[in-house]
Amino acid sequence: MKRKSRFMLILVSLVLGLFMFGGAALADSTCDPYNTYDPYNTYDPYDTYDPYDDSDNYGDYDEGPYIEELVVNTEDVQIAVGGKPATVKITAVCSDGTQMDVTKKCEYTSDDEDVAKAAKGKITAVGEGECTINAYYYDETYGESEVDIPVYVVAGNELEELEVKPESVSLSVGGKPVALKVTGIYTDGSKKDVTKLCDFESDDDYVAYVEGGKVYPEDEGSCEITITCDDVGTTVEVNVTRQIKLLTIVDAETEKPLKSVTLEVDDYKEIYVIAKYADGDTGYVTEQVAWTSKKPEVAEYCDDDGAVVAYDKGSTTLTATLGGKKVNLTVKVK
């Protein structure tokens, strides 16, 4: 009887031992994702997945390619007011080695639009000064980035003076118009034909008017043409006479025609110019004609004196011009 009781006790102990051993093994297998028994592996209820933890069993996290920087093809931009816009090129350099021209895809903003503005890679000067242009770019694959571009704006080459040819205009009623040529002189000394850029205005359209840079005669008289370009101006005197058939130079005392005259040094001779018109009438036009001298150092016509004035020994030819007609006077100085 004692042997039987001892045997039953041993059997129960074995069953309990097997049950406890199997339960421990089962518990260990639920804690081990690889289902291997590790006597040192204990279950941690606070162990959670961390995508940035390199030691985690699920591996490393890959954030994908991105824009490392936007590169501008120049360190800064220098432009002049009124000059051509500056063009920049912006390249997006990405982490995977990709490079993209994003110049026209960027959004541009200026911290001072009174100095410069920008759009699609073109920077335009507005006024003198300094400012910064910000270029911003966004891409669905590579993300966003931005870059600043320093801009320096200086004063442009400004128009300083207008030069007009001819300096004065003589026309005949019913005659052909005279074209004006206007040359702009700039602060850097350069010159440019600005005729087509000018505004012309006559102070008496009944005498002469301007159209397309040409002065047209209307009626006998005088007027002044004002020419302006970029707030710079000048004037041209216009004289309109009746159509002249012939000009004659005469002695002021005798009114006899003169072809030549001989004078002493520092001497003078008063003369008149008479015009014969197409309708047969005549009239004095001395103050209306334009005078030239081949050798002004020898002699020339002086408007203030109404006379030919001799300066030095020699010979020269004076020419009076009006209404497309000319008359010459030979002057000898002894």
Rank of each mutant, 00 (worst) to 15 (best):
E75P: 00
G283K: 03
E287W: 02
D56A: 11
T228V: 06
T241S: 14
A119E: 15
Y58V: 10
V215Y: 07
K259W: 05
K181V: 14
S202K: 01
L18S: 11
W291D: 01
T30E: 09
I149W: 08
S315T: 15
D111I: 07
L329T: 04
G97V: 09
T226R: 11
V289G: 08
A155G: 13
V232P: 03
G156L: 05
T226P: 07
D188S: 03
T286G: 02
E161V: 05
E144K: 10
K84H: 07
G156A: 06
I227H: 05
A307V: 03
G184F: 04
D205Q: 12
K256N: 14
G82C: 08
Y37M: 07
M20H: 04
Y206T: 14
Y34C: 01
Y137D: 05
E140H: 06
D305V: 03
S145G: 09
E158A: 15
Y311N: 09
M100C: 00
E163T: 11
K4H: 12
S170C: 11
E297H: 08
K105G: 11
E167K: 13
V126G: 01
Q78Y: 10
D54H: 10
N157Q: 06
Y37H: 08
V309E: 11
C31H: 02
E68Y: 05
L197A: 14
P33T: 06
D279N: 12
Y206C: 08
A118V: 04
V250W: 06
S5Q: 14
A307P: 01
V331P: 02
Y284W: 04
D50H: 13
E68L: 10
C198A: 08
V81I: 12
G156F: 03
E224M: 12
F7R: 15
K326I: 03
A25S: 08
Y46V: 04
A27D: 06
G174F: 02
L180D: 05
T226E: 12
D62W: 11
T91W: 05
G82A: 05
E297T: 09
A155C: 06
T248E: 15
L159A: 06
G314L: 10
Q78S: 15
T317K: 10
L11P: 00
E253Y: 06
G121M: 01
S293F: 02
I10W: 14
P65I: 00
I249K: 04
R3E: 14
C223K: 06
G127L: 02
V154L: 10
T317S: 07
T183W: 00
C131V: 04
